[in-house]
Amino acid sequence: MATSKVPAASPGDAYSDGSISMRTPSMKFIYRLECEMAKDSHFVGAQSGTSNARVIMPIVGGTVKGPQISAIIEHMSGADWGLAIGGTGLTRLDARYTLKTDDGHYIYVRSKGIFKPGPGVDIDPKTRTRMTQDEVEWFTRLQFEASGPYDWMNSVFGIGVLAMNDSKILIDAYELTNFM
């Protein structure tokens, strides 16, 4: 006998008149990305009068594998134009790059997110080769531009959960959905 999951009720229901019941959305796995970054980043530095510094981290390549996609990150097709917020440990991420699927289609990916150390964790991203979900909050909003057999990705509200191992950025990409 098959059992179906019942989505959890939204905690927001306790803060309204109850005229409509909401539920917590689900996440559906899309792919695992393993990204190779260039060894050298470009530090623009802080603008006059601010302590925020731009750091440009070129993306060299990588792989993408999931149930409906297998691809590579095109060599030198993008970068992350991060903004380190002075004195906070927070970096605002702004990455763009191109995937080339095994069947020859191109997919443009835009990724905006955050990187911040967890409570009591001191992390220097310039010297670390491994960072886990236990140490950092590293999330991104993924947007896709695709065609052909990957046209379905254009309507995905994507969420990326990140970590790093052996200096490779790992992203598990999920679709946020109301449906199971």
Rank of each mutant, 00 (worst) to 15 (best):
A2Y: 11
S4T: 14
A8C: 09
I20F: 15
I20Y: 12
I20H: 14
S21M: 12
M22G: 14
M27L: 12
K28V: 12
K28Q: 15
I30N: 03
I30Q: 00
R32S: 08
L33T: 10
E34L: 13
A38R: 08
K39L: 11
V44K: 01
R54M: 08
M57Y: 07
I59C: 06
G62Q: 00
V64K: 01
P67I: 00
S70I: 04
H75W: 05
H75V: 08
G78R: 01
G78Q: 04
A79S: 14
G82D: 03
L83D: 07
I85G: 04
T88S: 12
L90V: 11
T91V: 14
Y97L: 03
Y97R: 06
H105P: 00
V109G: 03
S111T: 05
I114W: 07
F115A: 00
F115M: 08
P117G: 11
P119W: 08
V121C: 11
D122Q: 15
I123D: 03
D124P: 00
D124H: 01
T129P: 00
D134N: 14
D134R: 14
E135Q: 14
E137N: 13
F139S: 01
F139N: 12
R141A: 07
L142Q: 02
E145W: 01
P149L: 10
F157A: 10
G158N: 00
V161N: 04
I169N: 07
L176G: 00
T177P: 06
F179P: 03
F179H: 11
M180G: 06
M180F: 13
